[in-house]
Amino acid sequence: MSPPLRAAVIGLGWAGSVHAQALARIDGVELVAVADTDPTRRAAYPHLYQAADVTGLLGHDLDYCVVATPTATHEQVGLTLADAGINALIEKPLAPTLAAALRLAAAFEQRGLVASVGHTERRNPAIAELATRLRAGDFGDLYALATRRHSPFPDRIRDTGVVSDIGIHDVDLIAYLTGRPISSVAARTASLTGRGHDDLAVAWCLLDDGGLASMELSRVAPLKERLLVLHTAAGRVSVDAVTRTITHHTNAAIGAGAPLTGFRGMSRGRVISHHIEGPEPFHAQSLAFRDALRGRAHDLVTLREGVAAVAATEAILAAARLGTDVPVATSIIPKASHAVEESPL
């Protein structure tokens, strides 16, 4: 039997703490070290090796690191790990700019390392079930997709706005669920808190096949809302990622056994709703990274997919600033591959 994979978490804020808890429950992985500039945060892990930053971990025989530091530091921390030959799971957004995200992706690819970006919304059980059913053709043609993501103000997030902070999830989900990259965007944003970042945003996305998607974002709401609405040949499908519920308002115009291609009309049918059980997203992500390192089948979000998400959010902010449609730089992002490669671990 192979020895446990030796892991470390860099950055012990909210996300880093959740990663540490998830790693502590994964068979075949041993959390052996943590790093954070705050000694008080490090003190919460007295049984682990502690360092102030990534350089203090490099001689500690690590198989991989989780990078949960502020977004502005992802490039420096990630490049240090890549140079040291250490695999990495990097929190979203992959980097603060498209150029930095591309440099990160190239660094890990050139060294043949396993690397992923933490788009955990894909691993919400309801969204994962939706993706499976879409790929199976259960809902037929997908006409359009809309997302709503609202949150109370996160005092801990001070270095970025709502588009880069939580909108990054939705641009990733749009590409993931439709199977198509976003080719251009239009958007408007507003800042209410005086911190110089966007707090409200709406964006309209055109996919490369002409498909439509829209996003509505805020971090000044008195509630947490995570909703996806899909218009399909089989009717309207909505997913509440908070309650993990899928609700299908069926299209009565589609007869039993009829092909779900082409528009055959739309009329009200019965409503079907399901609560979806499944593992916690951070736990599922940790399992996938372990399996990737062991050379097993996995569904990691690749760094190239992380690059694509950064490209889309960068275009949304540019569109809001310029007041015009902006193309997304997809031509420089090679199509991601989910092929499983042999791993020495």
Score class of each variant (00 low, 15 high):
68 A>M: 09
342 E>C: 01
43 A>C: 11
190 A>T: 06
3 P>K: 07
28 G>Q: 10
321 R>E: 14
300 L>M: 10
222 P>F: 03
37 T>Q: 10
22 A>H: 11
114 V>S: 03
68 A>S: 15
148 R>K: 12
216 E>R: 11
276 I>A: 02
45 Y>V: 08
196 G>P: 03
11 G>N: 08
185 V>E: 06
35 A>D: 05
56 G>F: 06
297 A>T: 10
289 F>G: 03
191 S>A: 14
22 A>L: 08
72 A>G: 00
71 T>P: 00
176 Y>D: 14
202 V>P: 00
206 L>C: 05
1 M>W: 14
182 I>E: 05
65 C>V: 15
327 P>R: 05
191 S>F: 00
141 D>H: 07
220 V>F: 05
150 H>W: 13
228 L>P: 02
204 W>Q: 12
63 D>A: 10
247 T>Y: 05
215 M>T: 02
50 Q>T: 13
66 V>Y: 12
236 R>K: 12
294 R>E: 13
47 H>E: 15
13 G>V: 03
224 K>I: 15
19 H>R: 14
86 I>Q: 09
105 A>R: 15
207 L>I: 04
87 N>Y: 05
255 G>W: 11
107 A>K: 10
279 P>N: 06
304 R>M: 08
324 T>K: 13
223 L>K: 06
222 P>V: 01
40 T>P: 00
203 A>L: 06
194 G>P: 07
242 V>Q: 06
189 T>I: 10
309 A>Q: 09
